[in-house]
């Protein structure tokens, strides 16, 4: 968990977020209960079909856990953040993209860090490149490949990385005059 200025508000939302996380699973279960009372046959069918989907995901899921473990062994959020804050030009782009790709966990955990990095002068394009590259999830590749095949995944990944960099560049260009940082555009990806 990354601390932020509004720590008080964050801890209060965190208290709410835990049950909220379980709200969706709980409502699905309630829905099942209601439907089972009215249409027992169809609901059993639904459960069976869900079971089949889940079974087909077991091996990819095991691989996902293995990849998570490997990434957690070698990377820490602190190191990823170090990638993000540094470098200009091509080096900065590569570092931000890499940080986005290897970053894990919900995006909410990253906003406070991004905010602080930006206050320290990290450029808009770097932030956008980081956020865009979060679409590439190395540890979820087993699931993606099991559904779509590796050729598709490969093409999509290449386009996503390229696209995110283009979006990042455009965001930086459109916000050129908005930079808060005193270091001007030195870290802005130019």
């Amino acid at each position: 968990m990354i601390p932020m200025k509004e720590d008080i508000t964050q801890s209060s939302t965190r208290r709410i977020r835990v049950p909220r996380m379980l709200l969706f699973p709980a409502s699905v279960l309630v829905l099942y209960g209601i439907l089972y009372a009215i249409y027992p046959d169809k609901t059993s069918m639904a459960l069976k079909s869900s079971g089949n989907i889940f079974l087909s995901m077991l091996i990819p899921l095991a691989l996902v856990f293995a990849l998570m473990l490997i990434l957690n062994l070698f990377l820490k959020p602190a190191q990823i953040a170090r990638f993000l804050g540094k470098g200009a030009g091509i080096k900065g782009i590569i570092l931000s993209a890499t940080a986005g790709i290897i970053s894990m966990g919900p995006i909410y955990a990253w906003y406070p860090l991004l905010k602080q990095l930006r206050q320290k002068g990290a450029g808009n394009s770097m932030m956008a490149i980081f956020l865009g590259n979060r679409a590439v999830k190395p540890f979820l590749l087993p699931i993606m490949i099991s559904y779509f095949g590796w050729i598709y995944v490969l093409i999509l990944t290449v386009f996503t990385v390229t696209g995110s960099i283009i979006v990042g560049y455009c965001v930086g260009a459109l916000l050129r005059n908005e930079t808060i940082s005193p270091s001007k555009h030195s870290s802005d990806g130019e």
Partner: peptide, 14 residues
């Protein structure tokens, strides 16, 4: 994830 899969099951059936 499990909830999503369960919902897909419902979707498939209903």
């Amino acid at each position: 994830l499990i909830s999503v899969v369960l919902l897909i099951g419902l979707f498939n059936a209903f």
